[in-house]
């Protein structure tokens, strides 16, 4: 079992962060999963930088693969964070996904911002959520709250 010395307050805060991000990912994934006509094509085609790359992702044969991967990644990260299992791996996936979202429509001055409810300059919510996952990655909590807690116990009990 990893040795993490968080105060109770720190642990609660970190678990809350993990659950909230997981909640958000899962909900986004589920909404898309149950909307068969949903596709990331428009988002990708309207990319403001790296157009050839995002255009390739949106192209005929790639587009449906990208949609499945996107939904899959959202659900996997959501489930992982909520139940507390393999959160490090899930963090890596989640950060990768958010980085792609960010790069397609970065909040750079001078680029079109598209419909969004706030005002952003360089840093936007995708980037903030990315940083939040970074925190989740380097301050794991699944050992204290999550399936990993049980499995770890299981292991210790068995090996002991």
């Amino acid at each position: 079992m990893e040795d993490h010395k968080y105060s109770t307050g720190q642990l609660y805060a970190l678990v809350a962060l993990r659950l909230f991000v997981g909640w958000h990912f899962l909900y986004e994934g589920i909404i898309k999963l149950y909307s068969p006509s949903w596709t990331a094509k428009g988002y990708l085609l309207s990319a403001s930088i790296l157009k050839p790359f995002f255009g390739w992702l949106a192209s005929g044969s790639m587009s449906s693969v990208v949609d499945v991967l996107n939904i899959g990644a959202l659900v996997v990260v959501g489930v992982s964070f909520l139940i507390g299992y393999k959160t490090k791996w899930a963090s890596a996936i989640g950060m990768g996904l958010l980085l792609l979202y960010y790069l397609a429509h970065p909040a750079f001055p001078g680029l079109p911002q598209g419909p969004s409810e706030g005002s952003y300059w360089i840093v936007n919510k995708n980037l903030i959520e990315l940083a939040a996952i970074w925190v989740i990655m380097v301050f794991p909590t699944a050992w204290a709250f999550g399936v990993e807690n049980l499995l770890a116990k299981n292991k210790t009990e068995v090996t002991n």
Binding site: G78, V79, L82, I83, A144, F145, N149, L150, K153
Partner: peptide, 13 residues
């Protein structure tokens, strides 16, 4: 502590 996440998952789903 191990399984409380599961009902949350179910609810969100």
């Amino acid at each position: 502590r191990g399984l409380a996440g599961i009902p949350v998952l179910g609810t969100v789903w």
